[in-house]
Amino acid sequence: MQSLCKFYEMGDQVVKALDSIDLDFGLNDYAAIMGPSGSGKSTLMNIIGCLDTPTSGIYELNGQQVAEMDDDELARIRNREIGFVFQTFNLLPRLNCLRNVELPLIYAGVSPEEREARAREALQRVGLGDRITHKPAELSGGQIQRVAIARALINKPSIILADEPTGNLDTATSHEIMKIFGELSEAGNTIILITHEEDIARYTRRIIRLRDGKIESDKPQ
């Protein structure tokens, strides 16, 4: 992305949530975006995740110009290219694990048989092969987050985008989840993490720090 800007108008004031951001993520990148609250990291995540579009600038994802797209095209990109993992998990409480994980495939138009097979495989990969008929309420926080990771994986996205994935978990579980991210990175996935915890960021290979809508630093570790 180049000179990406996102402005909000609040009354007669313009808030520059993102101010001329230039960023590149390569294949198999494993990066953490850090910064204090109000630094623009959530806005950046929304734009990277195609939930929102920038006010100006260029965002190219796998050769596709995202900034110009309408709602439905964005939905298609989110479905195919992005796997979300949220701090609050965001599973549908009425569906069991299997149904939650296969949801993106429904919107991708995959047949029921293939959906189920792939969802089982994804759940096995995060170590929940024996919990597929449980509903989210019957699982622990760490297990729910693993279901969410399985859902993010299922459509083989270009980017796995995790917004404070350990924010609601205790330390031991957090490190378990980070181990899974580590394994996924080894397997060749591109992962972008948003966090404000240094010890979580240390699991990644690259740390991008934001402050007041600008990049403060961007270095590998």
């Binding site: 709602d71 989110r78 993106p104």
Partner: peptide, 8 residues
């Protein structure tokens, strides 16, 4: 949630 995982 549905929109974020790609529901048009």
């Amino acid at each position: 949630i549905r929109k974020s995982i790609g529901a048009p």
